[in-house]
Simulated assay, not measured.
Amino acid sequence: MKKRANVIEKVCIYSAVIVLCVGILAPYTWLIISSISQRIDLTTVPLRWLPRQINLQNYREIFGGDSASSANRNLKYGVYNSLIVAGTSTIVCLIAGSLAAYTFSRMRFRGKNVFFSMILSTQFLPIVALMIPLYMIMRWLSLLNTRLALIISNCSFILPLVIWLMRGYFESVPKDLEEVARIDGCSRLGVIVRIVLPLSTPGLAASGIFAFIIAWNEFFTALILTSTLRSKTISVLISEYSSKVGVDYVAMAAAGVIASLPPVILALFFQKYIVQGLTAGAVKG
């Protein structure tokens, strides 16, 4: 009876995993198929699931075709801007967030829990409610239509998440190691750089990947704060494939595939660290 129950349990688990994988991979697979299809394949009834002929025209135009449409021709600038904005936002949030998280994890000061709760409470505010004051601040600072405006706005709502994740990870690092280093004459900053951060590599990787993905996918703030090609991110430029004359589904799908590559590559390369970072501190002993 027990063996039969174990078999049923495994069947249920594997079935749930298969359904979950299909639900996650099916939309992305269809995005790739749509990007190499002809427009008639996507609009015909009944729907043609596989293209009759592979169409790579949009990829050629995106990567430098002379006869490319304006949307395809401008997409490479969006990729460049997104890499700068997302990469800089991630680095700034990791440095500032790690120091702040260590402070909340190790040091004692009055109002620590209240201050930490105030930082986390910012995550409950919808970005729509913050756009008007954020826009006015950026206009007052003359930062509209600049990548710096996007970096500052991204850090404002990514930093609390990094602090929360890294604080939980720092609390799982043994304090004895830090105390031994302090006895040997290491400064507080030296302890962080030489002891804590090397032991926190999985947490840093997980926090960095989440920060990069959030900054890379951010659309609303980039749409409001930018209106020139030198500052528009790839998420904003993809929305421009929809015009008054209709939507170019194939070109938009090709742009979507390109936009998804950096987060997907990061997740595949650092998936081990993501799991370790998210599960750190779950079991204490």
Rank of each mutant, 00 (worst) to 15 (best):
2 K>I: 14
2 K>R: 15
3 K>I: 08
3 K>S: 07
3 K>A: 11
3 K>T: 08
6 N>F: 10
12 C>D: 04
13 I>F: 14
17 V>S: 09
19 V>G: 03
21 C>E: 08
21 C>W: 03
23 G>N: 02
27 P>M: 10
32 I>S: 00
35 S>G: 02
36 I>C: 01
37 S>C: 12
37 S>W: 08
41 D>P: 09
43 T>Q: 03
45 V>K: 13
46 P>T: 10
48 R>H: 11
49 W>E: 02
50 L>F: 15
57 Q>G: 13
62 I>D: 00
66 D>R: 15
66 D>Q: 15
70 S>E: 13
70 S>Y: 12
71 A>W: 00
74 N>T: 10
75 L>V: 06
77 Y>G: 08
78 G>V: 01
80 Y>D: 05
83 L>K: 00
86 A>Q: 03
88 T>V: 15
95 I>A: 05
96 A>H: 00
99 L>H: 07
100 A>R: 03
100 A>M: 12
107 M>V: 09
108 R>T: 13
108 R>A: 12
112 K>F: 05
117 S>W: 13
120 L>M: 15
120 L>R: 10
121 S>N: 11
122 T>V: 14
131 M>S: 08
131 M>H: 04
133 P>H: 14
133 P>V: 13
135 Y>W: 12
135 Y>D: 05
139 R>D: 10
141 L>F: 14
141 L>Q: 08
143 L>C: 09
145 N>T: 10
150 L>Q: 01
151 I>N: 01
153 S>L: 13
159 L>H: 02
160 P>S: 13
161 L>E: 04
162 V>E: 05
166 M>W: 11
169 Y>M: 06
170 F>I: 05
172 S>C: 03
176 D>L: 13
185 G>K: 12
186 C>D: 12
186 C>L: 15
186 C>M: 14
188 R>Y: 12
189 L>W: 11
191 V>P: 00
192 I>V: 15
193 V>C: 11
194 R>C: 13
195 I>S: 06
196 V>Y: 07
197 L>G: 06
197 L>K: 07
199 L>G: 03
202 P>G: 08
203 G>K: 09
206 A>I: 07
206 A>W: 05
209 I>S: 04
211 A>D: 11
214 I>W: 09
214 I>E: 05
216 W>M: 04
217 N>P: 10
220 F>C: 04
222 A>I: 06
224 I>Y: 02
224 I>N: 00
225 L>H: 02
231 S>C: 11
232 K>E: 14
233 T>M: 08
233 T>D: 00
236 V>G: 07
237 L>G: 06
239 S>D: 05
239 S>A: 15
240 E>R: 11
243 S>W: 02
243 S>T: 14
246 G>A: 07
247 V>H: 04
247 V>N: 10
247 V>G: 07
254 A>H: 02
255 A>G: 15
255 A>I: 07
256 G>T: 07
257 V>S: 01
259 A>I: 01
262 P>L: 00
265 I>F: 04
265 I>M: 01
267 A>W: 06
270 F>C: 04
270 F>S: 06
274 I>D: 03
279 T>S: 07
284 K>V: 13
